[in-house]
Nucleic acid binder design. Structure first.
Lengths: 125, 125
DNA sequence: CATTAACCTGACGTTGGGTGTATATCTAGG
DNA sequence: CCTAGATATACACCCAACGTCAGGTTAATG
């Protein structure tokens, strides 16, 4: 698969793929013959994972720090203690974010209830 | 309270406060005498709310669109149906984000468990 | 009352996350 | 063999969300 197909399937521009490669988010693709990049399925999976992590609010740097956990053989990863540390930081952040989101959701529900009430009252009169 | 105290208490710079004011996130403060801005408690609450919404991943523009829901008398808000719509969009986003975060957290826990196992094995040998 | 700390505005700089554009090369179909 | 379409690199530019700097005003205090 060339960069055009990959970018279309992943829903990002080929410029973004180049950019991610420069940042180390994507492994440099194979370059058969001339300079063309050729990708396989894992590249697509990686891009999807990156998108998911972005939605969670991670920066590209943070993603670069954890993405290999999903795609490299864990036994081959250097500095396991370091990785563990990163993971634990991430989980703490996730917990904070989950509880804030839950509180936010509660507030929203209260606001919605208030709005419904106000609208009902307005229609009464 | 002047801008210095406000910025310190809210944990943002005074330039950020100026910036938020320009974007309409913060009501222009009272300007007694010369041009100094003077704030009250609600300004601090607003800044805290803004920070909370930012952590949820809202852009400053999006925050500007909803912040008044928290600080204006609900009965005085124009276009209640519109507001309701915004609120419902927000709650849907929050739900999506919560479930993605929960799944992410589960993944992280699994990775942590794997790491612990690998480290233990490494120490055995 | 003079100094110093706090404030003002405006212009420009920076960082993150990209996008646009120009120019060159390659590959495939006719 | 030639041309169209896909890629390559490099440099410039964009937007959001600030930060820095410079020059000027104000308020408070010893």
């Amino acid at each position: 698969m060339q960069i055009g197909e990959l970018s279309e399937r992943a829903g990002v521009s080929h410029r973004t793929i180049h950019y991610y490669e420069r940042l180390g988010l994507l492994k440099p693709a194979e370059r058969e013959g001339a300079g063309y990049r050729y990708y396989d399925q894992t590249a697509l999976k990686r891009l999807e994972k990156i998108a998911a992590l972005k939605r969670l609010g991670l920066s590209l740097d943070e993603i670069a720090a954890v993405i290999d956990l999903y795609f490299e053989d864990a036994s081959g990863i250097k500095g396991k203690e370091k990785v563990l540390e990163i993971l634990q930081t991430q989980i703490a952040k996730a917990d904070t974010q989950i509880s804030e989101l839950t509180a936010f959701r509660r507030d929203l529900e209260a606001s919605i209830a208030r709005m419904h009430k106000l609208i009902a009252e307005a229609q009464q009169q």
